[in-house]
Amino acid sequence: MGFKLLSKLLVYLTASIMAIASPLAFSVDSSGEYPTVSEIPVGEVRLYQIADGVWSHIATQSFDGAVYPSNGLIVRDGDELLLIDTAWGAKNTAALLAEIEKQIGLPVTRAVSTHFHDDRVGGVDVLRAAGVATYASPSTRRLAEVEGNEIPTHSLEGLSSSGDAVRFGPVELFYPGAAHSTDNLIVYVPSASVLYGGCAIYELSRTSAGNVADADLAEWPTSIERIQQHYPEAQFVIPGHGLPGGLDLLKHTTNVVKAHTNRSVVE
């Protein structure tokens, strides 16, 4: 069995187990497998329904001669939608809004960016022009300005110390501490036991640490421990890039980060 097929099978099995364990909360999309990078042309966006009122959005972007996937989250909030992270750029984010209108038909009224990198804030200006209120932590807003990236308009308070959590509509926002970046936030959907790890969490097929220019490698494993301790009931975990899975993604990420750190020390 090929690795790609095995990865998709694991996603399907995880979703099936969740649907059985929580039949009222989960209505997993039966329309197909989780979209992969090879299936999404740059400039297009796919939506994948995880649970009743919960979707991931998947886009792709060219970077350094390669094409990478990027995940975000959409959560229903009454007759409105909360968006977590842009679709990595203005063109993708405009396509995301169009796809949401086509498939869901509810307005996106608020959006949260989970850290300051372009795959999370690139497209904020498109959201703002569409009347979406954009939010991020003060740290993310400051770092985005320093980096020359787009800056969300509103500040999220109460997320300055490791372990801080605040309720934001249908989700809980959690600051686990520094990891992929010093400002990275985690998003949890309690009604569906869905954990969105953003770039602080890796997919299972990833074996290298990737972009760690703004990471705190020493603190990252401790931050992941905080996530595990705060959300032990999480059933569906979405990484910032690639295929979702279960809580095993947290341990896998820790292993990859520690291996990278150990290699760096040896070198």
Rank of each mutant, 00 (worst) to 15 (best):
M1N: 05
M1E: 05
F3D: 06
K8H: 07
K8C: 15
L9S: 14
L10Q: 15
L13Y: 14
L13K: 15
L13M: 11
I20E: 15
I20W: 12
I20F: 08
A25H: 15
S27I: 10
S27M: 15
V28M: 15
S30V: 13
S31Y: 11
S31G: 10
E33G: 11
P35A: 08
P35I: 07
S38Q: 09
V42M: 08
L47V: 12
Y48R: 11
Q49N: 12
A51L: 06
D52L: 10
G53D: 14
V54E: 02
V54Q: 03
W55C: 03
I58P: 03
S62H: 08
A66K: 11
Y68S: 12
P69T: 15
P69E: 15
S70N: 06
G78V: 09
D79T: 09
L81H: 02
L83C: 01
W88L: 00
W88I: 00
K91L: 14
N92T: 07
T93C: 00
T93M: 01
A94T: 14
A95M: 11
L97K: 00
L97M: 08
I100R: 00
I100T: 06
Q103N: 15
V108Q: 00
D118H: 08
V124I: 10
V126S: 07
R128P: 05
A129H: 11
A130P: 06
G131R: 07
Y135C: 05
A136M: 03
T140K: 06
A144V: 07
V146A: 14
E150W: 02
E150C: 03
S155R: 11
L156T: 03
G158D: 07
S160I: 12
S160R: 12
S161V: 13
S161T: 14
V166W: 05
R167E: 13
P170N: 15
E172C: 03
F174Y: 11
G177P: 02
A178D: 06
A179R: 04
V187L: 04
V189G: 01
P190G: 08
P190A: 10
S193P: 04
L195I: 08
C199F: 02
I201M: 07
I201N: 05
Y202R: 05
L204F: 07
S205E: 14
S205Q: 07
V212Y: 06
V212D: 07
D214A: 08
L217N: 04
A218W: 11
S223M: 02
S223H: 00
I224P: 01
E225C: 04
E225G: 12
R226H: 07
R226T: 06
I227Y: 01
Q228W: 11
Y231F: 11
A234N: 02
Q235W: 08
Q235M: 08
F236C: 09
F236P: 03
V237I: 08
H241F: 02
P244D: 03
D248W: 06
K251V: 12
T254M: 13
V256I: 13
V256A: 06
H260K: 12
T261A: 12
V265K: 12
